[in-house]
Measured scan of single mutants.
Amino acid sequence: MATGGRRGAAAAPLLVAVAALLLGAAGHLYPGEVCPGMDIRNNLTRLHELENCSVIEGHLQILLMFKTRPEDFRDLSFPKLIMITDYLLLFRVYGLESLKDLFPNLTVIRGSRLFFNYALVIFEMVHLKELGLYNLMNITRGSVRIEKNNELCYLATIDWSRILDSVEDNYIVLNKDDNEECGDICPGTAKGKTNCPATVINGQFVERCWTHSHCQKVCPTICKSHGCTAEGLCCHSECLGNCSQPDDPTKCVACRNFYLDGRCVETCPPPYYHFQDWRCVNFSFCQDLHHKCKNSRRQGCHQYVIHNNKCIPECPSGYTMNSSNLLCTPCLGPCPKVCHLLEGEKTIDSVTSAQELRGCTVINGSLIINIRGGNNLAAELEANLGLIEEISGYLKIRRSYALVSLSFFRKLRLIRGETLEIGNYSFYALDNQNLRQLWDWSKHNLTITQGKLFFHYNPKLCLSEIHKMEEVSGTKGRQERNDIALKTNGDQASCENELLKFSYIRTSFDKI
């Protein structure tokens, strides 16, 4: 039985969820670079991206490699990797027998973001014989899940209580170790020597080791999670996991709180800001991140802002960003909400898709409305799209047979046209069989910064309504002859009103 693990408890099935942008060198404390989270699957090609990484700022997932063999891993080693800020997950990587050479110096898994409450997941690794993470000293947050690894031993010899604050939620089941077939031998045991430290858990006094050649490092209890030197002297209180010299914040392997210019500090002093819960960055760093993602459509890219001495992905609820200094300031009234469309555009074809934009005031991208039916549609669209004030790209209304009016965009005031449909149009209306009105132009103002209007096959939309939009939106004169079809717009509506004058002759039985 794995020490510190839980057996036999019912657990939810383990679901495996399925960018080499360097964020800056980590400095003297770390020998390499800070790398983003990685999802490495199918083959070993991307694994080489770990070569210079000291910190993975995010998670590391290595999974679904069915053609790899043990010899493929023999020359692979990433000794610079010290810390993973989120979680480490391995799933069905064939041929991998140990992690001792792959990650010989991995010391800390912070667990800032977890995989279903777990910071370390080893699942269905069919050839893994031992973990071998002999320098792993601290899992700051989260638990361990090690399950269905039929060859995995050296679990009962690990004292997880020396690595985690609590072992109650560890789930370590259905491994070879369960069948008591392992016969784990710690260093020196074969020669009758006791080389590794022994600890007591559940009444068992057991030597602690990761492999037959690597003991588990056990520091004096007084050192807590700070770690200790090879001689057993406690590291500085700002260290986490390990250090090369005692009581020196510049000799830590990793930091308990924050890293700044080669030393570990309790908090980031001005003019620095907390970033990702582990390091200090200056304003320029946060500003660069903001600008890199301002026009990016890459998933996970955030326009970072500053709030409460932190550089964070977005302002919290009730705050909006001051564009001059990136500071989050309290909103006066309802907060603006910028919604970034991942692929640059979004099609609204149902109430469900409209709900995804609920509360958005600025759309960074283009909207395509293609709704053919739905219950209580006008009210639903207004509830979900009615706060949109600005669209950076274009607005396209296409084959939306259920629409009679666009009044559900009740606050839309600006279409920038930074991206144009077919390279020309910022407003595009095609084949809307029941569209009769755009907006009530006596109450609604709309500016279209650039781009043209396109109207074709809107049989109940009168040309007068379209011409009014040209005047109000500032697009009059931009359109070419064929942009607004004269014969297919309003051709099934009563669009022309003329005053009919009647004269009559009164007659009676005795007068003409």
Rank of each mutant, 00 (worst) to 15 (best):
R279Q: 15
L332E: 14
D288N: 14
L136W: 00
D277C: 02
L174S: 13
D247M: 03
S296V: 07
V305M: 09
G300A: 10
R162V: 09
K224N: 05
M83T: 05
R298T: 14
F103H: 00
P271K: 14
G188I: 14
P187G: 14
N257M: 03
G300I: 13
L120T: 01
N242P: 10
V34I: 04
L44S: 08
R92H: 09
C219V: 04
K176V: 05
G192F: 15
W278Y: 04
Y272W: 10
A198I: 12
T199S: 06
V173S: 08
N242L: 11
M38I: 10
E147D: 04
G333S: 05
G58C: 01
G333Q: 09
L131Q: 02
F283E: 11
T199A: 07
P249M: 06
E180F: 06
L89S: 02
K193A: 04
D165M: 06
Q216W: 08
E71G: 10
R74S: 06
P79I: 03
Q216T: 12
S225D: 05
L50Y: 05
H212G: 06
N179R: 14
D288Y: 06
V167H: 08
N117I: 09
P31T: 12
N43R: 07
C196P: 11
L260M: 03
P197I: 13
N175A: 12
V305Y: 03
N43P: 02
F283Y: 11
P70I: 08
C328T: 03
S112K: 13
P79Y: 03
T194D: 06
S296W: 01
C252P: 00
K191N: 14
L240S: 05
N309I: 02
S98A: 07
T140K: 14
L102M: 08
P187H: 04
R74G: 02
R263C: 05
E231W: 04
I56A: 00
V55M: 06
G318A: 04
K80I: 05
F275D: 01
L152F: 01
H127R: 03
L102S: 01
N309W: 07
V265D: 03
K310F: 04
L81F: 01
Y304M: 05
L233N: 14
L155F: 08
C243K: 00
L332T: 03
H274V: 12
D288G: 10
C234M: 04
S54K: 03
E130N: 09
D86W: 02
R46Q: 06
N175F: 13
C228R: 02
R113P: 03
E57L: 04
V218D: 08
G241H: 04
V218T: 08
L260H: 03
E231T: 09
E57R: 03
D101S: 15
P249I: 04
K294A: 13
A230R: 01
L88A: 01
C215M: 15
N179Q: 08
N105W: 02
R279N: 05
R141K: 09
M65E: 13
R113L: 06
L89H: 04
N295F: 11
P249L: 07
N242Q: 14
N42V: 07
C293K: 03
P334W: 05
N42F: 10
I139R: 01
K176T: 15
H127L: 03
S77R: 10
Q276L: 08
S166I: 10
E231K: 05
G188Q: 10
C186G: 11
M38W: 02
G300S: 09
A230M: 05
K176E: 10
P316D: 09
W210R: 07
N117R: 06
N308I: 06
H212A: 14
L164I: 09
F285W: 08
L152T: 03
L44N: 04
P104C: 01
Y171C: 02
C286M: 00
D72N: 15
N170S: 07
M137T: 09
L29A: 11
D277G: 09
F103Y: 01
S143V: 07
E33Y: 00
N308H: 10
I146L: 14
R162G: 05
A156Y: 15
S225N: 15
C252V: 00
E181N: 10
R41S: 15
V144H: 01
C209V: 03
H214C: 15
H59M: 09
W160A: 02
L102K: 00
N202D: 10
N308T: 05
L233P: 03
G188L: 12
T267A: 14
C264Y: 00
L102W: 11
D178R: 07
K217M: 12
C255L: 00
L164P: 01
N138V: 08
W210P: 02
F123A: 03
R298C: 15
L44H: 08
D86K: 02
G142A: 01
C293V: 04
D288Q: 15
K80T: 06
A254V: 08
Y94Q: 15
L106N: 02
Q61I: 08
L155D: 06
F103L: 03
L90I: 08
C235S: 00
R263I: 12
P70D: 14
Y304A: 03
R279K: 06
G333R: 04
Q245I: 09
T189L: 09
C315F: 03
F116Q: 04
H302K: 01
S317N: 04
L29I: 01
S161D: 04
D261Y: 15
F91L: 04
L164V: 15
G192C: 14
C209Y: 02
H307L: 05
K224V: 08
G32R: 14
E238D: 14
V200S: 13
G32L: 12
I40G: 00
L99G: 02
S225F: 13
C286W: 03
L102A: 03
P269A: 11
D184K: 14
N52L: 05
N52W: 03
C235K: 00
H214W: 14
L29W: 11
N309G: 13
G241A: 11
C186R: 02
N105P: 00
K129D: 03
L233F: 08
L131M: 02
G300M: 06
G188D: 10
S296D: 15
Y259M: 12
I56T: 01
P271V: 05
C35L: 00
L96T: 01
L99C: 04
V265I: 04
N150I: 12
P271E: 15
A119N: 01
T229N: 14
R110L: 09
T250F: 09
C315R: 00
I158L: 12
I84A: 00
D247R: 11
F258P: 00
S244P: 04
N117C: 04
G58I: 00
K217R: 11
N242F: 08
E124K: 06
R145Y: 11
F73L: 07
E51L: 06
L128Y: 01
T140C: 08
L63E: 04
T267P: 01
G203F: 07
T329N: 09
H274A: 10
D159N: 13
C264G: 00
